[in-house]
Amino acid sequence: MSDPGSNDQALEALVAPPVDSTPDVVDSVAIARLYGEPLFNLPQDLYIPPDALEVFLETFEGPLDLLLYLIRKQNFNVLDIPMAEVTGQYLSYVEQIRATNLELAAEYLLMAAMLIEIKARMLLPVAPREDGQEPEDPRAELVRRLLEYEQMKIASQKLDELPRIGRDFYNAQASADFEVEKILPMVQLADLQAAWADIIRRAKLNAHHHITREQLSVREHMTHILRHLSGVRFIEFSDLFMSRVNEGAPVAVVVVHFLAMLELARESLLEITQAEPYAPIYVRLSYSSMPA
């Protein structure tokens, strides 16, 4: 005998299954999905705005491009443009643009106004110039702009024809996984000699010098000078130092000897005299220090 509870559960599973087992395709192929559900037919009340699908065709790049196209297509001489015919064709194209894109037509309308102005100026009688030269052609400025634009257009086309990376070709790339053994150079005898000579040269530059301090007394040299001058009336300046120089005294001793002489002169114990300019200089004891 079956359980009534189990029969109720099986019935609920058939009415509301936990997983949706409805196939996406039923006798046909679904063309789309709307909120996750398959859609086999387009709705009858579907609204598609007129500008939902817009096709962009290759068009002219500006007023000068259109004007140059009209001239070259009909083999007109750019230096002698038939303004009436070209202006009529230009205005016809501008009217087509205004019907679809008013913002784009504004740029072409400016050129149309210039063409109409040139056409009107050519219909008016030309007044002679005061300098006797030919009056300027009203089309001259337009011709200059057309020729410059054509040169730039041809140059841009030539640049576009050049091979471009990513469009016409790609850089070749290759990877290799290998090890290169580094070969060490051979050392020659001359290289060792040069390296050793460089070490010797640098060692000589880093030699150490030992400086010793020599005790020199100015008072001692002052006593020596007084003793030297005590037995003579005067002595020449250079002879006062020759005794020290002959003894082989270093420069420092001679400098201290000179400082001792200056100190004696400052204390008025010595007199340094000279008879006339560039004459020899003499040193003697002051009279005040000599015995009476």
Rank of each mutant, 00 (worst) to 15 (best):
Q173I: 06
Y170N: 13
L192Y: 13
L192C: 12
D160E: 11
L192G: 11
V187D: 12
K158E: 09
A172H: 09
M152E: 14
D177M: 08
Q193V: 08
L192R: 14
Q151V: 07
D137T: 01
E148I: 00
M186T: 15
Q173V: 08
Q173G: 11
Q157S: 08
P185V: 05
E148A: 06
D198I: 00
V143L: 02
A140R: 11
A197F: 01
I154G: 08
D137P: 03
M152F: 09
Q133W: 01
D168I: 03
Q133K: 11
D168F: 02
M152D: 11
D137S: 06
V187Q: 15
A140K: 10
A194I: 07
A140Y: 04
L146C: 03
P185T: 10
P185L: 05
F178P: 06
E134Q: 13
E179R: 14
R164F: 03
L147P: 00
D168P: 05
P185F: 02
N171I: 07
Q151I: 03
L192V: 14
G166C: 05
E136R: 11
K153S: 06
R167W: 02
Q133D: 10
Q151A: 10
A155N: 06
Y149P: 00
R139Y: 03
D198Y: 02
R145I: 00
M152K: 13
Q193K: 12
Y149V: 00
E179N: 14
F178Q: 08
E161S: 11
I154Y: 05
S156K: 09
Q157R: 12
M152P: 02
D198K: 10
L147F: 00
A194P: 04
P163N: 08
R164I: 09
I154V: 13
P163A: 12
A190S: 14
Q157W: 08
A197M: 01
F169G: 07
N171A: 09
E134P: 04
Y149A: 10
A190E: 15
I154N: 10
L146I: 07
Y170R: 11
K153D: 06
R167P: 00
K182T: 15
L192H: 08
L162I: 08
M186D: 14
A174E: 02
R144T: 02
G166N: 03
P138K: 01
Q157N: 09
D177V: 04
E148V: 01
S175W: 01
Q133F: 05
E134A: 11
A172G: 13
A197G: 08
A195D: 08
I183A: 12
D198T: 04
Q133H: 08
I183T: 15
E150W: 02
Q188C: 08
A190P: 05
Y149R: 06
R145W: 02
P185C: 05
R139Q: 11
L147I: 05
V180T: 13
Q193F: 03
L189K: 09
V143N: 05
